[in-house]
Simulated assay, not measured.
Amino acid sequence: MSRKDVTKELSEKVEKKLRRRFALVAREVWVDPDHRVDFMAFSPGVGGRNMKLEHGRFVFVEVKSCMADFKSGYGLTFRGDDNWLVCPRDLADELHDKMLLPLGVQVYCPDNGGSLRLRYDLSMRGAGSLREDSTLCLLWAMLMDSYTRWRTTGGLFIEASD
């Protein structure tokens, strides 16, 4: 399978998982002029309207198909409350064995049935978030600086395009 095909297949799995779990999902989001993340998702917190937004969580997802893709210098933007690296299992194991997995990242790989499963957890639970930007900045980026975005509601997906 080509690098492009692997990336496409992994991206479809990520999109499916995110759209089931998060209220707002966007693809190819520019978080600043120099950094783009493959996927960003937002889930509101609990409480009143303002509190839900301010205490919501962002997940940043990077998809890597091979070691060359990982080492390309592009797309290792892990600035969310949660950060996922999605890649084939053999790449995850190689990155783990060579101690190249970024700190603060959860690594997801397809299982034998094709579902994404947590393979390695290097998240910094209890040590805070890697998020640098405010909720407002990140929601704005999702809405205005992304290739596509979806608002998800109870299994109903509505795609909005530019």
Rank of each mutant, 00 (worst) to 15 (best):
E15Y: 05
E15I: 05
K17Y: 08
K17T: 03
R19D: 00
R20S: 06
A23F: 11
L24H: 09
E28V: 07
W30S: 03
W30Y: 13
W30P: 01
V31Y: 08
D32M: 11
P33R: 04
P33C: 06
H35I: 12
R36W: 14
M40Q: 14
A41E: 12
F42R: 13
F42N: 08
P44Y: 15
G45T: 14
V46Y: 15
N50L: 15
K52P: 02
L53P: 05
G56W: 15
G56K: 11
G56N: 07
R57G: 07
R57D: 05
F58P: 03
V59A: 07
V59K: 09
V59G: 03
V61S: 05
V63D: 01
V63S: 01
K64F: 00
C66T: 08
M67A: 07
M67K: 05
D69F: 00
D69A: 00
K71R: 11
Y74M: 03
Y74R: 06
L76H: 05
F78Q: 02
R79Q: 10
G80R: 10
D81Q: 08
D82P: 03
W84R: 07
W84S: 05
W84D: 03
V86L: 10
V86Y: 14
R89N: 07
L91N: 01
L91S: 00
D93L: 13
E94D: 12
E94H: 11
M99T: 09
L101M: 09
G104K: 09
Y108T: 05
P110E: 00
D111I: 15
N112W: 14
N112I: 09
G114E: 03
R117H: 08
R117I: 13
L122E: 04
M124Y: 11
R125M: 11
S129T: 15
L130G: 03
